[in-house]
Every structure is written in structure tokens, then in C-alpha cells.
Amino acid sequence: MRKVVHKLFWVWQFDKEEEWLNEMAAKGLALVGTGFCRYEFEESLPGEYEVRLQLLEKSPVHPESEKYISFIEETGAEHVGSYMKWVYFRKKKSDGEFQLFSDTDSKIKQLSMVISCILILSIINLVVGVENTYLLIRHFSGALGGGSSANIIGFVNLAIGIFGTAGAMRLIRKRSRLKKDKQIFE
């Protein structure tokens, strides 16, 4: 039996998203499909699968990404879905531990890609947010006429920008810890 769950994870929560997908897998709900805020599961044995997700450099349908995805599949994992540049894999736990990155360098590289993506998103939202909020204030102070396009969307942009920046800071700290380790360990 299939079960669809709608849940929102922001980009900066990608590690929490993976944790949640693995909690679901531990309960016997294995991921089979993904979409916008949408996760499709099938019933499996509890803990049968381990799920990993990753941000790719290019779209999942780009030939380079396709080559990568089929390489991962050749190692016994299953590509269960994509959303934008994110890909989702699962692998049976009985086939051994499932990780996509085993050394510090590749973990740092992946984190850096996610951080850049979040920072771009946050900066755009902050700029648009400040602009719209400014318009809104001018509107209410009577400086602008009734035809103003100012609305509360500015606050939404501001909130996304602020939460995004905070999320990026958490990931930057995580990356710094990895970089510190690299001075001692491989």
C-alpha cells in the first residue's frame, strides 16, 4: 500500500529531511517518490531501507547527472526520485551501510554547494523583502497613492531571507568543524 505525505522542508533543512526520511524507513515506510513538499512511501519491513539525498551540480536529467545516477545505482542503490536539483536514493540495509560521501573533502564539497544555493536564495529574498516592506511603509504613511502594489508579501520575503541566512550559518558552522578535522585527519 502506498502512502503520500505532504511536508515542507526548506533547503537549509536538507539534513533534517534525510533524518526524517530515515525515521519513516525505520517505521516501515520506504520512500518511492518525491515532488514539491510531497513524499510517496510504500510499506516495507521496518528498517529495510536507508535513504540518502543529494544536491547535484546540474539538473537530474542532464547527461552528466544521468551518468552519476546510474553509477550510484550500479552500487546497489535505487534512484527513487528527484526534485529540482535534488536526488533521492535508497538502499537495502542488508546490502551494507549506505552513504554517498565517505571522505571529508566530498562532504565539504556537498555542503558548500548547498550553502551557496541557500545564500543566493536568501539574498534575493532579503533584497525583495526590504524593497516591498519599504513600499508598504510608504503606502501606509500616505506617501504613495491608492494604486500602490505594496502588500505583505515583503514580510514573507524578509522571513525567508532571515531564516535562510540563519540556516546557512548553521551549515557553515558544520562545514568549519569538518575543515578543522581535516587539519588532523584525512
Binding site: Q54, Y68, F71, I72, T75, A77, G96, E97, Q99, L100, F101, S102, D103, S106, Q110
Partner: peptide, 8 residues
């Protein structure tokens, strides 16, 4: 244990 993404 080499992870597939790192190996690629």
C-alpha cells in the same frame, strides 16, 4: 567503506 558518490 568507500561511499559511491566519493568514489565517483
Amino acid at each position: 567503506k568507500l561511499a559511491a558518490g566519493t568514489l565517483y
